[in-house]
């Protein structure tokens, strides 16, 4: 996802939702993480204008806000696809062959981890552990887990997400 695309999307975003999100948390600076989680839920990522608005309303310097947001893996600074593929990189998945699963997904979609397809269909991410170790190797697509994978199964799974 190039910076131009992000800039093209950014001016159109409607910031009015942010005020509503922040309302219950006004004056509670310790609630900044839940606020960012809700803002991200709304926009799919954390656009710069939204960050500026959060900074203004919560009276937290923008630098500190970015400091928090970039620390945690959950927060994304770029737009993401409709379907988020999370490849589990946990131990059990690793020794059961998750690198081969990741390779196959990367080949099939032409993406590296952290990237999004141009049509905003898929974003590929890595996650430390999904907690479904018994079914390793596992991926999650949005909230649906897919377990006991082999590279051959990848294409059919991806095709089922339009």
């Amino acid at each position: 996802m190039s910076t131009e695309t992000e800039a093209a999307i950014a001016p159109e975003i409607d910031l009015s939702a942010i005020e509503e999100i922040i309302e219950p948390y006004l004056g509670k600076k310790e609630m900044v993480i839940p606020v960012l989680q809700k803002v991200q839920e709304h926009f799919g990522f954390l656009p710069r204008p939204a960050m500026e608005e959060v900074s203004r309303l919560m009276r937290i310097p923008l630098s500190r806000l970015y400091g928090v947001a970039t620390f945690y893996a959950q927060f994304k600074m770029k737009p993401r696809g409709r379907y988020i593929i999370r490849v589990c990189k946990g131990t059990a998945c690793h020794i059961q062959g998750s690198p081969k699963i990741a390779d196959r997904i990367e080949e099939t979609l032409g993406l590296q981890s952290g990237e999004t397809t141009d049509d905003l269909r898929f974003t590929l991410e890595e996650v430390a552990c999904i907690g479904a170790c018994a079914l390793a190797p596992v991926i999650m697509i949005n909230d649906e887990p897919h377990g006991r994978l082999t590279p051959d199964k990848i294409k059919d799974i991806l095709d089922s997400y339009e």
Partner: peptide, 26 residues
């Protein structure tokens, strides 16, 4: 309930507390 935002180091108790306080989890 506080939802973590994805940082392994937050399993460390002082980092976890920083995270609950809305800071970087260090």
């Amino acid at each position: 309930i506080k939802e973590g935002a994805g940082a392994f180091v937050c399993g460390e108790e002082t980092a976890l507390l920083a995270s609950i306080e809305g800071k970087r989890g260090m």
